[in-house]
C-alpha cells in the first residue's frame, strides 16, 4: 500500500474515533446534564428532548466542520426555516437523519422499531416522540394515536421527516417511494417539503464505519420543492402527489448528471 494512502487511512481513523467519541461521551454528558433533568422537570418533555437532540447534533456537526475542513456544508436559510411540514428526503448515508436533526429543532420521524430496543437510545427515541415502525404501532387504534400526535406536533410548528425510499441508496439512484409519508401528510393536512441531500455518502460511505476526511467535498441540503396539495379536492390522488414528488427528485438528479 502506498505510504500516502496509509497516512490518509490513519487520519480518517483518528478523525472517526474523535467524532464517534464525541457522539458517545457527549451523549453521556448530555444525559446527566440535560436529558435527565428534562425528563423529570420539563413542562413538555418531548419538545425539550427534541431541542436537546438538535443541540447535541449541532455540536457534532460543528466538530465535524473543525476536524474535516475539506468538507463544506451548503445549507440555505429556507431549509432551516421549514416548520409545520412533512419533510420528504432522499437517503444516502447514516448521517442524513442526524444532519436534519442538527438543522431543525422540532423534529419527529418514524424509526425502525429495533432501535427502540437499544438501551438508552431507545429511551431517547421514545421520549423524543419518535414513532416506531413496528406493526403494533402502525396498526389499529395505536396508529390513530400516533397520527393524532404527529398532527398536533405539526400544528405546533414542528416537522416530521420521512425517507420514502425506506433505506439508504447504495448507488445514489432513487429507489421506489413508499406512499405512506404522503398519506400521513394528507391525514395531518400538512404541506410537503421536498429536501434533497447530496454528498453525505462521500463524507461517510455506506458500508464503512469511517469518515472520509481527505476528499474535497460539499454536503448540500436543498429545498427542491414545496407541495400544498388540495387534500379535499375531488380529483385528489395520493399516487399523483407521490409521482409529482418523485418527478421533482428525478429532475434534480438529472441536473446533477448533466453537470457531471
Amino acid at each position: 500500500m502506498p505510504p500516502i494512502r496509509s497516512i490518509q487511512r490513519v487520519i480518517n481513523f483518528f478523525i472517526t474515533l474523535l467524532l464517534w467519541s464525541y457522539f458517545l461521551f457527549g451523549s453521556i454528558v448530555f444525559f446527566f446534564l440535560f436529558y435527565l433533568p428534562a425528563y423529570f422537570f420539563a413542562g413538555n418533555r418531548i419538545t425539550a428532548f427534541q431541542k436537546l437532540n438538535h443541540l447535541h447534533m449541532k455540536n457534532f456537526f460543528t466538530l465535524t466542520r473543525w476536524l474535516i475542513p475539506r468538507t463544506k456544508f451548503a445549507i440555505p436559510e429556507e431549509v432551516r426555516e421549514i416548520h409545520s411540514s412533512v419533510i420528504v428526503c432522499n437517503h444516502l448515508s447514516y448521517l442524513d437523519p442526524i444532519l436534519l436533526i442538527s438543522l431543525l429543532p422540532r423534529l419527529r420521524t418514524i424509526v425502525k422499531s429495533t432501535f427502540f430496543k437499544v438501551p438508552f437510545f431507545g429511551w431517547l427515541l421514545k421520549n423524543s416522540g419518535y414513532v416506531p415502525s413496528a406493526p403494533s404501532e402502525m396498526l389499529g387504534p395505536a396508529m390513530i394515536n400516533n397520527l393524532e400526535s404527529i398532527k398536533e406536533h405539526l400544528a405546533a410548528g414542528g416537522n416530521l421527516f420521512v425517507f420514502p425510499e425506506g433505506t439508504r441508496s447504495r448507488n445514489g439512484k432513487l429507489m421506489p417511494f413508499n406512499k405512506g409519508v404522503f398519506s400521513i401528510a394528507r391525514y395531518c393536512d400538512a404541506p410537503l417539503k421536498l429536501i434533497f441531500i447530496e454528498n453525505t455518502n462521500k463524507l461517510f460511505r455506506p458500508g464503512t464505519f469511517s469518515f472520509n476526511a481527505r476528499a474535497f467535498n460539499i454536503v448540500k441540503v436543498e429545498l427542491i420543492g414545496s407541495l400544498t396539495p388540495d387534500y379535499q379536492g375531488i380529483d385528489f390522488s395520493i399516487s399523483a402527489v407521490a409521482d409529482q414528488a418523485r418527478s421533482l427528485y428525478e429532475a434534480r438528479l438529472a441536473t446533477n448528471k448533466e453537470k457531471n
Binding site: G140, M143, R186, Q232
Partner: peptide, 14 residues
C-alpha cells in the same frame, strides 16, 4: 395495509 386503511378513512370523510 394500515396506510391503505388511513387512506380509506380519509376517503370516507370526503
Amino acid at each position: 395495509d394500515s396506510i391503505d386503511a388511513i387512506e380509506l378513512l380519509l376517503e370516507i370523510e370526503k
